[in-house]
Design a protein around this nucleic acid. Structure first.
Length: 419
RNA sequence: GUGGCUGUAGCUCAGCUUGGUUAGAGCGCCUGACUGUGGCUCAGGAGGUCGGGGGUUCAAGUCCCCUCAGCCACCCCA
């Protein structure tokens, strides 16, 4: 290797993508603030045990392969976080946030996550996620609040999303459902793929995620009852209350009776937001209620719900829609030989006044500088040439109309700021 | 992790089958025509470790091996 390259799957985020990232994350911060979600920043790595305990034994074999796990110098096993929830919940417990903060506790974190997977477009080994959690309430009001919050996020980015919604019931509901599912599939299992045989043994609900056409056909045939028909009284009431609130809020959703999660800790509400135009992997946000996780990680039994926004696919969708704009100056300062200091001082004054200002680094020809202004998309050009400086004025040129007018240098900032 | 496709200029690609003088195009970029005024046009220019390493050969972008990276499907999607 003649030149060093970034490790496989670890992306450089460069402009304009980095600006899209900033736009999305800045929006998230301001939006979450209005909903009362407060920032928490757990470390990017945890003792491996944290993630293992969170995952339970539902799919440990596969997960271990996809985690960035290593041994530190003190021979402890650490893992770069593959997702946000486990670390947030661990921090919630460790910092006694269940006692220190008003309940329920609303938290969000934004940052990189790591999964050792084969990279593809929109699937890197390091990727940004926006993680939102509300810990300490079992009320469907919180479920609805989170769905509104996620909806508003995408709406404000100008992205059209589809919400897929389901309820998986609680653990007791699922234990009743498993034998029903196994029974319903018993005479069809022979036609299903090897993976589904394993799934039916270890994690039966995951058969609904199978992509093999044969399996899909069988599962969609209609004689397989979905889990939503096996919800207990409380789970059913919870789900109905949520749906009623969504209707009142005008949030559209699609019933997804086969939508499931791979982890044991998920209970009741599960959801995904898709952007169909993304094709193969359309999901930009996924989440659900996890009433069992806090206890599973050693805390007091505490209900909770959360979701994660995949920033990478969101950025791809923004770029496809051209919903994101690259950096663009409002003003471009044109100058000539000998007045560099005045030109730079003028640009600096305008920048201090809050304007986005670009300026050539050399006293190039007017033609060249105006061409730059045009290409950068500046709407207004400020001309500070030797002639103007001698008379203590600047020319202001409107790039749309081509009109020019002169303004005293002293009053320039005031003039342009109030436009 | 499995299977497959692709790496040539900033971008999109041609050239590879049938090895042979200075490796091309379009777009973009820079400069000039217009010596202080953008978009259009015209002219000129810069820019290339042909992903990297090794091999075969008088000669490799072209053939062979290895390797790295990207992409697609699977897997997985906490």
């Amino acid at each position: 290797m003649a030149r060093p390259s970034a490790p496989r799957g670890l992306p450089d985020v460069v402009p304009p993508a980095s600006e899209h990232l900033e736009e999305a994350e800045a929006l998230a911060r301001s939006l979450f603030d209005r909903y009362g979600y407060r920032r928490i920043e757990p470390p990017v790595m945890e003792y491996t045990e944290v993630f293992q305990r969170a995952a339970g034994d539902s799919s440990e074999v596969v997960l271990d392969k996809q985690m960035y796990t290593f041994t530190d110098r003190s021979d402890r096993s650490l893992t770069l976080r593959p997702e946000g929830t486990a670390g947030v919940v661990r921090a919630f417990i460790e910092n006694d946030l269940g006692k220190k903060l008003p309940q329920p506790v609303r938290l969000f974190t934004i940052g990189p996550m790591f999964r050792y997977e084969r990279p593809q477009k929109g699937r890197d080994r390091q990727f940004e996620q926006i993680d939102v959690e509300c810990i300490g309430s079992a009320s469907p009001v919180i479920d609805a609040e989170q769905l509104v919050l996620a909806s508003e996020f995408f709406e404000r980015l100008g992205l059209e999303v589809q919400l897929n919604l389901n309820s998986m019931g609680d653990l007791a509901d699922r234990e009743k459902y498993w034998p029903v599912l196994r029974e319903a599939l018993s005479d069809k299992i022979e036609d299903m793929c090897d993976d589904c045989h394993v799934r039916l043994e270890k994690n039966p609900l995951r058969v609904f995620d199978c992509k093999v056409p044969e399996c899909r056909k069988i599962l969609r045939a209609g004689d397989i009852p979905p889990i939503s028909e096996f919800l207990g009284e409380e789970s059913r009431a919870h789900y109905e209350a949520l749906q009623e609130m969504l209707e009142t809020l005008g949030i559209a959703w699609k019933d997804a009776p086969h939508l499931v999660r791979g982890f044991d800790y998920y209970t009741r509400t599960v959801f995904e937001f898709d952007i169909p135009s993304l094709g193969g992997r359309p999901t930009v946000c996924a989440g659900g209620r996890y009433d069992g996780l806090v206890e599973q990680l050693g805390g007091a039994p505490t209900p909770a719900i959360g979701f994660a926004i995949g920033v990478t696919p969101t950025l791809i969708a923004m770029e496809e829609k051209e919903a994101a704009k690259p950096w663009q100056p409002e003003l471009f300062v044109v100058w000539t030989e000998g007045v560099a200091s005045v030109a730079l001082a003028t640009a600096t004054d305008l920048r201090r006044a809050g304007l986005r200002v670009a300026m050539s680094d050399e006293a190039k020809s007017f033609r060249s500088q105006l061409r730059s202004a045009e290409r950068l998309g500046a709407r207004t050009v400020v001309i500070v040439g030797a002639d103007e400086v001698a008379r203590r004025v600047a020319k202001i040129k409107d790039m749309m109309s081509g009109d020019e007018r002169e303004v005293a240098l002293d009053g320039l900032v005031k003039e342009l700021r109030t436009r």
